[in-house]
Amino acid sequence: MGIFPAFHAVKIAYAANIPHNHRMKRGEYTYIWQADDWPNWRYDLARLAEPMAAASRAQGVLLGRLADVGMALRNEASLVALTEDVINTSEIEGEHLNVASVRSSIARRLGVDIGGLAPVDRHVEGVVDMELDATGHCRVPVSKERFFGWHAALFPTGYAGLSRINVAAWRDDARGPMQVVSGPIGRQRVHFEAPPAERLEFEMTRFIDWLNADTSEPPLIKAALGHLWFVTLHPFDDGNGRIARAIGDLLLARADGSPQRFYSLSAQIQRERKAYYDILERTQKSSLEVTEWLAWFLAMLQRAVDQAQHTLDKVLAKMRFWQRVAGKPMNERQVKVLNRLLDGLDSKLTSSKWAAIAKCSADTALRDIHELLEHGVLRKSAAGGRSTSYELNDVLER
Results as ranks from 00 to 15, higher is better:
M71E: 12
A46Y: 15
D113P: 02
H96R: 12
R26V: 13
I18W: 02
F148W: 11
H20K: 10
P51A: 11
V80N: 01
D37G: 07
I92G: 00
R109K: 13
D44H: 14
N75T: 10
H123W: 12
I92W: 03
L79Q: 00
G64Q: 06
G111I: 02
G94V: 10
A107D: 07
V61F: 11
G111M: 08
P156Y: 04
D121H: 05
R42Y: 08
G126E: 04
R146W: 12
R65H: 13
T83W: 08
V80G: 02
L63W: 06
D113C: 09
G149H: 14
E76G: 04
V102K: 02
R57K: 14
G161F: 12
D129T: 13
V124F: 07
D37R: 07
P141F: 15
R26F: 13
N21S: 14
H151L: 06
L48H: 00
V102F: 07
K144Y: 09
T157E: 05
A134K: 00
H151R: 04
L45I: 13
R65S: 09
G111Y: 08
L162G: 05
G64I: 14
V86T: 06
A153W: 15
R65T: 05
A49S: 10
I114M: 05
M24Y: 11
G149S: 13
E131W: 15
R74E: 07
S78C: 13
L63F: 14
A100W: 09
P141M: 11
S78R: 02
T30E: 07
R57Q: 12
P119E: 02
N98G: 08
L154F: 04
T89R: 03
G94I: 13
I92D: 00
D44G: 07
P39E: 06
I32L: 11
G161Y: 12
F148L: 01
D113S: 09
A55D: 01
G70E: 06
A152F: 10
R65Y: 09
M130I: 04
L162A: 11
G161M: 12
M24T: 02
I18G: 00
L62I: 06
I18E: 04
L82S: 02
R42Q: 11
D68E: 15
G158S: 05
T83P: 02
N88K: 13
G161N: 03
N98D: 14
A49C: 03
V124L: 05
A107T: 03
A77S: 06
E95C: 00
A35P: 01
F148V: 00
D44S: 07
T30W: 15
I114S: 02
G64D: 05
G149T: 15
E145S: 09
A81F: 09
R23T: 07
E93R: 09
L154V: 06
A55R: 04
N17T: 14
C138G: 08
A152T: 11
G70A: 01
V99W: 14
R109T: 06
A100M: 09
Y29M: 00
W33K: 01
D121G: 01
C138Y: 15
W33N: 00
A54P: 05
L110R: 02
P39Y: 15
I92R: 00
H137D: 14
E28Q: 05
A35I: 08
D129V: 15
T135R: 03
N98T: 08
M52Q: 14
A53F: 04
E125A: 11
W150D: 00
M130N: 03
I87Y: 12
G115I: 07
V120G: 01
G149I: 13
